[in-house]
Nucleic acid binder design. Structure first.
Lengths: 136, 136
DNA sequence: TTGTACTGTAATAAATAATATTACAGAATG
DNA sequence: CATTCTGTAATATTATTTATTACAGTACAA
């Protein structure tokens, strides 16, 4: 569906990792990503649900990683963001009167699951810490 | 970007494979997929560029596979449809004044390329023929 | 040769989804 | 108790997908 969310989430987490032991504001994050601060807070709301981000409210509030970046795998981020199979489509209602159309969703889903598993296995190999360390 | 195109293309090719030695019309294909015939023809126009579909114009015209389904890998379809990295986002213009933002696109691209490679490797293992044979 | 049934493609419209904006309640701090 | 954040909802804007309309061109067949 929306694959841009992975980029945004990874960007957020990379920034949080590069300011350890600091509380970073949504405004600052939004400034770096060049998107609206409300979208950042919404995205973080999801990342918090998955334990990847922690926050503090109030005047000196802000965001930080929910756990050490060495314990966050890129697959964790992918799973947190995922809401539809990566190869699937939005609206997909094939004709049930057609022999192929009637069955295709089942087979597409199986295929997408397998393909996604391969993708996740790959993302599983890299931690956020390792990703952040690529920045000079 | 638009990941629904993979579903549509695979659906088209599966149908063509299940009517071998026949010319299938865009109307029929559209009827099974439940989308507009013009979109089918547009999608096929792309598949033709990649040699996956052949067509015949005129009164008795229609579409057929460009080569035997045993010689079409699901990775071929993916590559034909792909127009942006699977994990990438549409608009992505991070702040160049930010140390992280300035560099992130480069690192995202590398990551997406690697992840996509894993996906393609997986899709490479299955032919269209094998996929079609899953239908009963 | 001419009507018919297709493909091929462009141009436009409609529907859907992504993102931005506005607004404001609530929390923590000084 | 004013300030500066988060949290969230509601709405508006923009972008992207999909559908529709239109029509030129091709091949066939009566």
């Amino acid at each position: 569906m929306n694959n841009g969310r992975f980029s945004i989430s990874l960007h957020i987490l990379t920034l949080l990792d590069s300011f350890p032991n600091e509380l970073v504001s949504s405004e600052f994050l939004a400034g770096s990503i060049n998107i609206n601060p409300v979208l950042v807070r919404k995205e973080i709301s999801n990342l918090k649900k998955h334990g990847l981000v922690a926050s503090k409210e109030g005047k000196t509030g802000g965001f930080m990683l929910g756990r050490p970046s060495k314990q966050i795998r890129l697959s964790d981020i992918y799973k947190a963001v995922r809401q539809a199979p990566i190869l699937g489509q939005t609206r997909n209602s094939p004709n049930p009167k057609c022999l192929i159309g009637k069955q295709i969703n089942k087979h597409l889903e199986n295929l997408f699951d397998e393909a996604e598993e391969a993708l996740i296995k790959k993302l599983d190999k890299t931690t956020l810490s390792e990703f952040t360390n690529r920045f000079s």
